[in-house]
Computed example of a mutant assay.
Amino acid sequence: MRGYNGFMFFAVITISDRCSRGEMTDTAGPAVAELLRRQWAEARIETALLPDEEDAIAMLLDQFASDGAALAVTVGGTGLGPRDRTPEATRRVIDREAPGLAEAMRAMGAAQNQFAWLSRGVCGLKGSTLIVNLPGSKRGATESLASILKLLKHGIDVAAGGQGHP
């Protein structure tokens, strides 16, 4: 999938009230962007920081999909807190869920930390854009993403119209 100027492009959106107010520094979003950069050196990676506002999250996900992002990753807002609304925003945007990705991340995470089972993150497709919800902690986000990188490579290719199985 090609976005801006013929290059594959990805979006990393950190969702955090405290980071968006400047009360905390976002470390998880940059760590996720760096992990993606190491796997897809040719990709353009755009980052954003939003508060936990469902409408704003849905609008930005929809915009990145419209702009041709191959992958849009959210970081944060997947827990049980009253302001954690990232999965709801994602479900509003996606056309089809890819539940196996979220299940794989929870299962791999739970092998290290049982609290991974409390993550409500979802994954799915908006057109040919793959959307993945990651936890908000740096460790949780990077370990979750690392656990599905191989799957993402194939999923991005198939979503863009590629054929076959590895």
Rank of each mutant, 00 (worst) to 15 (best):
E103D: 08
A33W: 09
G121Y: 11
A98E: 13
A141S: 03
K138C: 10
F115C: 04
G127Q: 07
T129I: 05
C123I: 01
R2Y: 02
R18D: 14
S128E: 12
I148S: 02
R38K: 13
N5F: 12
T27D: 14
T90I: 03
L125Q: 08
K138P: 01
F64Y: 14
S119G: 10
S147V: 03
A70D: 02
A69G: 04
H154G: 03
L36W: 03
E34I: 00
I94D: 05
A43H: 10
F64Q: 13
A33L: 07
D67N: 14
I94Q: 09
K138E: 15
Q114V: 06
G136A: 01
G109T: 00
M1V: 13
T142V: 15
D55W: 08
A11I: 04
C19D: 09
G140W: 08
S20A: 15
L61G: 04
F64W: 13
F9P: 00
M105C: 05
A69T: 11
A11T: 12
A70H: 07
P99Y: 07
S119Y: 07
G109S: 09
A160Y: 09
Q114W: 10
A116W: 10
L36T: 10
E88C: 01
A141T: 11
N5R: 14
A33M: 00
G109V: 01
G127T: 06
A69F: 04
A48D: 09
V132M: 11
D67F: 09
L71R: 08
T27N: 05
A43N: 11
G6V: 02
Y4C: 10
T14N: 01
R21G: 01
E46V: 14
K153M: 10
S66V: 00
A110W: 07
L35D: 02
A33D: 04
L49E: 00
A72N: 01
D52I: 03
N133S: 09
A69E: 00
L134P: 06
I45W: 11
I131K: 04
G161L: 06
W117G: 14
K150L: 14
A69K: 07
R37D: 05
D55L: 04
P166H: 08
D95F: 02
G22R: 06
T142P: 04
L36E: 01
E53S: 08
E23K: 03
G162W: 09
